[in-house]
C-alpha cells in the first residue's frame, strides 16, 4: 500500500501546481487509504523525492519526474476508459487511480499512440499533463523545464541519441541553454551536451506544473 500511497502523494502535490504544499493539507488531497500517511511522506523525503521545510513539502527534481510519470499514466488511462470504453468520468478516474501504479511505461506509450491514431483530431488532452501541451522542439523550451520526449526528427542522423536514452516517452530535464540554442539535458542521470541542430530535432512536451 505504501508504494501506491507515495505515488499518489507525489501526484497530488504536482496537481496542486504549487511549489510548496503543507503536509496537513495533503491529507485531504490524497483519496482512499490514508493509513501511514505521515510515514509515507517521511519515506519519500528519505528517498529523495521530497524536500521538507518549515513551509511544507516540495517536489525534488526526481520527485517531479516521478509525479509527472504517474500523472501522465493517470491521464492516459482515464481517457482510454472514457473515450474508448465509455465509462463514467468519475469512475474512470477512480479506476485509473488504481491502475496507474502497476501499468508499465511501455504499455502507456502504446495506449497513448493508440488513442491518438484512433481519433487524432479530438484527442487533445486527457488532462493537465498529457497531450495538452503542444509538441515543440527542444530548442524552444526554457532552461530548467521538465520535458517528455515525443519524437525525434531526422532520426537516422542522430542514432546516438537512442544509445544515450533519448527515446520517445523518456523524461528529460533541460539543464542549460545558450544564446545559440546549444543545450545540456539530463537523461537517465547523465548530462548530455547537444549542438543546436541536434536540439531542434528533438520534439518534446513540457510537463512542468503550472
Amino acid at each position: 500500500m505504501t508504494f501506491e500511497l507515495s505515488e499518489d502523494i507525489l501526484e497530488a502535490i504536482l496537481n496542486t501546481g504549487k511549489e510548496t504544499v503543507k503536509v496537513s493539507s495533503l491529507g485531504n488531497l490524497v483519496s482512499g487509504d490514508t493509513d501511514g500517511f505521515g510515514k509515507a511522506v517521511t519515506c519519500l523525503v528519505e528517498k529523495g523525492y521530497l524536500n521538507e521545510s518549515v513551509a511544507g513539502v516540495s517536489l525534488t527534481e526526481k520527485g517531479a519526474k516521478k509525479a509527472a510519470q504517474v500523472a501522465r499514466k493517470h491521464a492516459v488511462l482515464t481517457s482510454f476508459l472514457t473515450e474508448v470504453l465509455g465509462n463514467e468520468p468519475d469512475n474512470a478516474s477512480k479506476e485509473a487511480c488504481l491502475m496507474e501504479h502497476t501499468i508499465s511505461s511501455e504499455t502507456i506509450e502504446k495506449l497513448d499512440t493508440f488513442l491518438e491514431e484512433r481519433n487524432p483530431t479530438e484527442h487533445e488532452g486527457h488532462a493537465e499533463l498529457t497531450k495538452r501541451s503542444p509538441i515543440i522542439s527542444l530548442s524552444e523550451c526554457p532552461e530548467g523545464s521538465l520535458l517528455h520526449v515525443s519524437m525525434i526528427k531526422c532520426f537516422a542522423k542522430h542514432s546516438r541519441l537512442i544509445d544515450l536514452g533519448v527515446i520517445p516517452g523518456e523524461l528529460i530535464t533541460l539543464r542549460r541553454k545558450l544564446a545559440n540554442n546549444a543545450v545540456v539535458i539530463t537523461v537517465k542521470g547523465c548530462d548530455i551536451a547537444l549542438s543546436p541542430e541536434v536540439a531542434e530535432n528533438i520534439m518534446v512536451e513540457r510537463c512542468n506544473p503550472r
Binding site: K157, H158, L164, C190, A193, S195, P196
Partner: peptide
C-alpha cells in the same frame, strides 16, 4: 563525410 551535430556526454 556526413556532418553530425555534437552529442557529447558531460
Amino acid at each position: 563525410g556526413e556532418q553530425y551535430g555534437m552529442i557529447l556526454e558531460m
